[in-house]
Amino acid sequence: MTITTIGFDADDTLWHNEVFFKGTQARFAALLADHADPDHLMDRLLAAERRNLGHYGFGIKGFTLSMIETAIEVTEGRVPATVIAEILADGREMLRHPVDLMPGVADCVETLAADFTLVLITKGDLLDQERKLAESGLGEMFDGIEIVSDKTPSTYAQAFDVHGEGAHRSLMVGNSMKSDVVPAIDAGAWGVFCPSEHEWELERAKEPADHPRYRRIVTLADLPPLLATL
């Protein structure tokens, strides 16, 4: 089947994102250095993020709330208000971070927009994702925008039905095996893994290496040549 529609993830596929989370985590560890060693603190924070996903969803606001919850836990309720204020300030700063495109993104998207229907499929804070897309300069190249609460096979099936000719004639590319690749393949689409330097542990999944609709590239610059082979 000819591919007519290409779905793109946003964070750490089109632009840098996880690096800002890593920097905030380092500052968080410094704030609570008297209460927990960094490794233990990061384990507690990850556990809080995991159990809070169903309440807060993905994105910076949920991450900030999980940091506050972790700070309360590791200090047994004695965390100073000044520390909470600094955590909140770090969260607001993350919501203002600049948009820095990944290598080869602008050329790749512009090239593919001439021949394919392009759909941005991303999850996270609605306002934050809309801001980053606007500042990226890429928005006009996409035929559809889907900002979703989670990425499941049904998410992709619906998105590719609405914006394309169905999942079987679509391809999804992203840096998350768990969110961008595996559920897209399960929906019937192609899944292309484009790993980023920084990976969030909760986005890891087993690589479907033997699946006929799975491919792996190094950067988005490799996507147009790959499409010519499919």
Rank of each mutant, 00 (worst) to 15 (best):
Met1Thr: 13
Ile3Gln: 04
Thr5Leu: 08
Ala10Asp: 02
Asp11Pro: 03
Asp11Phe: 02
Asp11Cys: 07
Trp15Arg: 03
His16Tyr: 13
His16Ile: 15
Glu18Val: 01
Val19Ser: 08
Phe21Val: 12
Phe21Gln: 08
Gly23Arg: 09
Thr24Phe: 01
Arg27Pro: 00
Phe28Asp: 02
Phe28Cys: 04
Ala29Ser: 11
Ala36Tyr: 05
Asp37Cys: 10
Asp37Tyr: 02
Asp37Ala: 06
Pro38Leu: 01
Arg44Phe: 01
Ala48Leu: 03
Glu49Cys: 11
Arg50Ala: 14
Leu53Glu: 15
Tyr56Val: 00
Gly57Gln: 05
Gly57Cys: 07
Ile60Trp: 01
Lys61Ser: 04
Phe63Val: 03
Thr64Glu: 07
Leu65Val: 08
Glu69Met: 04
Thr70Cys: 09
Ala71Val: 10
Ile72Val: 13
Glu73Pro: 01
Glu76Gln: 14
Ile84Cys: 09
Ile84Asp: 10
Ala85Pro: 15
Glu86Gln: 15
Ile87Lys: 05
Ala89Asp: 14
Gly91Gln: 09
Gly91Pro: 14
Arg92Asn: 07
Met94Leu: 15
Met94Arg: 08
His97Asn: 15
Pro98Thr: 12
Pro98Met: 11
Val99Leu: 09
Asp100Val: 15
Leu101Tyr: 07
Pro103Glu: 13
Pro103Leu: 05
Gly104His: 07
Val105Leu: 10
Cys108Thr: 12
Val109Gln: 01
Val109Asn: 06
Leu112Gln: 08
Ala114Glu: 10
Asp115Pro: 01
Leu118Asp: 13
Ile121Asp: 06
Thr122Pro: 00
Lys123Val: 00
Lys123Tyr: 01
Asp128Trp: 07
Asp128Val: 11
Asp128Thr: 07
Arg131Val: 06
Lys132Cys: 04
Ser136Asp: 04
Gly139Asp: 07
Glu140Ala: 14
Glu140Ser: 14
Met141Asn: 09
Asp143Tyr: 00
Gly144Lys: 15
Glu146Asp: 11
Ile147His: 14
Ile147Pro: 15
Val148Gln: 11
Asp150Phe: 06
Asp150Ile: 04
Thr155Cys: 02
Ala157Ser: 11
Gln158Ser: 10
Gln158Trp: 04
Ala159Pro: 00
Phe160Gly: 10
Asp161Gly: 03
Asp161Glu: 10
Gly164Ala: 01
Gly164Trp: 11
Gly166Thr: 01
Ala167Thr: 03
His168Ala: 12
Arg169Phe: 00
Arg169His: 10
Ser170Ala: 11
Ser170Pro: 02
Met172Gln: 05
Val173Trp: 06
Val173Leu: 07
Gly174Phe: 04
Asn175Ala: 15
Asp180His: 02
Val181Cys: 12
Val182Ile: 11
Val182Ala: 09
Pro183Glu: 06
Ala184Pro: 02
Ile185Asp: 10
Asp186Arg: 13
Ala187His: 07
Ala187Lys: 00
Gly188Met: 09
Ala189Ile: 00
Trp190His: 11
Trp190Leu: 03
Gly191Tyr: 00
Val192Cys: 06
Phe193Ala: 06
Phe193Glu: 08
Ser196Glu: 00
Ser196Lys: 00
Glu197Met: 08
Glu197His: 08
Glu197Leu: 13
His198Asp: 10
His198Arg: 07
Glu199Asp: 05
Trp200Val: 12
Arg204Trp: 02
Arg204Leu: 14
Arg204Asn: 07
Glu207Ser: 09
Pro212Glu: 05
Pro212Ala: 02
Arg215Gln: 12
Arg216Trp: 03
Ile217Asn: 01
Ala221Ser: 12
Asp222Met: 03
Pro224Asp: 12
Pro225Lys: 05
Leu227Val: 08
Ala228Arg: 14
Ala228Ser: 12
Thr229Arg: 06
